[in-house]
Simulated scan of single mutants.
Amino acid sequence: MHVYEDNYCKYDDHMLQLFTSSLYLAALVASFFASKACTVLGRRPTISMASTFFIAGAILCSVAEFKWMLIFGRILFGFGVGFGNENLSRPSSRTRNRPLTRIFNHHRNPGQPHRKAALKKVRGVEHVDAEFHQIVLACEHGRQVKQPFKKIFRKSGVPALVVSNMIQVFQQFTGINAIMFYAPVLFQTLGFQSDASLFSSVITGLVNVGATFVSVYTVDKVGRRTLLLQACVQMFISMVAIGGILLVHLKPTGSLDKGLAAVVVILVCTFVMSFAWSWGPMGWLIPTEIYPIETRTSGFAIAVSTNMIFTFVIAQAFLSMCHFKAYIFFFFSAWIVAMGLFVLFLLPETKGVPIEQVEERLWKQHPVWKKFFQYEGVARWHE
């Protein structure tokens, strides 16, 4: 791809927007079916279904001769994303030191000795009777809930519902799409010519993957809030700096000075880096950690749907937002400030909190969200 003519609005095309956003709309629809499939059939059949959709979409896109074939193939990819994402809510997707409920789930007699032995192995200690009993009670209570969506929308379910869904909204409004979209323009300025798109994808992709490993190794050491807040500062500085340079020096036609372009490429990489170890993975991890066992799968399905809705909105509108020119970077900078304030005041730290204790140790201890549990006992007694 060789970027030319208008540096900001070269690809303002409604058909291209439909092609891009159709995946997310399909994933939104699929997530509701995937939640039920994952609960009834289990993880492996659901993953197999996701794989089938991916393969069918790839085949259709590879042989496509008409636009509708490409769009339909993209929709099949969306179904694959919907079914694949749902499996993130299962216990095995949690971090290494807290996948305990999978030892007990889907068994009618969770008191068998080998399950207690497994818990001892995970914890590395012999005295686990109190925790074992607590997990057993939580799993039994979870199996007895017949209408998890009703429970989610009770007053005590509001904190987890708000936090998990706002994280999905913020993930899409970080501005990562703006960064990725304008990257080829910057790489072309550096002299990559027609290979600008390829080189920008390779370099930002490598930075993305490398930074994701940073998240894997640090998330249980420094905590979720620390990663998110640090990333907000780094993303804000990168975004404002990129916007300022482009506002002053990049016109609709022409190119940047190579020195400035190199600076902006470095800023792009620092932005991608901070997103990849924070809002990228945390957007999927945190919603699996803040719901109690009985509403976890349903709550995550709602979070996935919210993510797909706002990804669809961004994908459908983003190419037209090019008319903001460099100001689009300041638009997303304002969202990053809002994200930081949200984490600072409303997001509890889930590090080291077992899933069977999320209500007691997260929500009932939080200065804002604990108000939603003040009359919880009375409400349950009446039920």
Rank of each mutant, 00 (worst) to 15 (best):
Y4H: 11
L23W: 10
A26H: 15
A27G: 04
A30Y: 14
A37T: 15
C38Q: 07
P45D: 07
T46M: 07
M49N: 06
A64P: 11
A64E: 11
G73Q: 03
G78A: 01
N85R: 05
R90V: 12
T95E: 01
R108N: 14
G111I: 07
K120D: 09
G124L: 02
E131D: 04
G142Y: 05
G142C: 06
Q147C: 03
I152T: 09
K155S: 09
Q172L: 08
F173E: 02
T174M: 09
G175R: 02
A178I: 15
F181T: 11
A183Q: 04
T189N: 12
T189V: 05
Q193D: 12
S194M: 08
D195W: 06
V202Y: 12
F213I: 00
F213K: 00
Y217L: 03
L227G: 01
Q230W: 04
L246N: 10
H249Y: 13
H249T: 09
K251A: 07
V263M: 15
A276S: 09
W277H: 05
W279D: 05
W279L: 02
W279V: 01
G280D: 06
G283Y: 07
T295E: 03
R296M: 09
A301N: 13
A303Y: 02
A303W: 01
F310N: 15
F318C: 04
F324A: 10
F324C: 08
A326H: 13
W335N: 04
F342W: 11
V343F: 02
P348H: 08
G352Q: 02
V358T: 14
K364E: 03
Q365Y: 01
W369E: 01
Q374A: 12
V378Q: 14
R380H: 07
W381F: 13
